[in-house]
Simulated assay, not measured.
Amino acid sequence: MRLSLTTLAALTAFGLATPAVAAPASIAGKWKTDDGKSVISFYQCGSAMCGKIDRFLVAEPAGGARDSKNPKKDLRSRKLLGLRIFWDLKADKDSYEGKGYSPQDGRYFNADIRRDGNQLKVKGCVMVICRTVTWTRA
C-alpha cells in the first residue's frame, strides 16, 4: 500500500506534535500569609510573575519594619513594605517556579507556588530542605 505524500506529511506532523499543557491557575492578586501578619501582592512583571509585601496586618515598629536579617549589610536598613520578595516566577506545568526571599530569616530560596482555589501553596526550598505554607485570598 502506498501512502500519498500529503497523507505521509500529515501523519508525520501529527506524530511529532506535542500535547498542549494547560497553564497553571493565575496567582495574581493579594494573598494573606499563613501567620496572618501580612498581605503579599502577586503581579505580572515582564514575562514572569513577581510578589511584593503589599501591607502589614500587625503594627509596624516606629519608622517602619526593616530588612534587618538580610545577609547583605547594606540592605538591612531598607523598608519591608513594598519590598519584592518573589521574582522570575514562570509557569511550569501546574505551578509557578522562580526565586524568593524571606525577610523573617534573611534567606533566599527556590520557590514553587501552586494555586488551589482560594488558597496558595507556597513551597520554598534551600538546598534539599523544603517548607510549604498555605496562604489564603486576601
Rank of each mutant, 00 (worst) to 15 (best):
M1Q: 07
T7H: 13
L8N: 08
T12K: 07
T12M: 08
T12W: 15
A13C: 09
A17W: 12
T18I: 15
T18L: 13
A22L: 13
A23D: 04
A25M: 00
S26A: 03
D35S: 08
G36A: 14
S38Q: 06
F42R: 02
Y43D: 03
G51W: 04
D54W: 07
D54K: 11
E60L: 09
P61Y: 15
A62M: 11
G63P: 01
G64R: 09
A65E: 09
D67C: 05
D67F: 06
S68E: 12
K69H: 10
P71R: 14
K73P: 00
D74P: 01
L75C: 00
R76H: 08
R76F: 11
K79L: 13
L80S: 00
L80T: 00
L80D: 02
G82A: 10
L83W: 03
D88I: 03
D88Q: 08
K90V: 14
D92V: 12
K93F: 07
K93V: 08
Q104F: 02
Y108T: 03
F109M: 06
I113K: 04
R114T: 02
R114V: 06
R115Q: 01
N118Q: 12
K121Y: 13
K123M: 15
G124V: 07
G124Y: 07
C125V: 11
V126A: 09
V128F: 14
V128I: 14
V133Y: 10
T136I: 14
R137A: 13
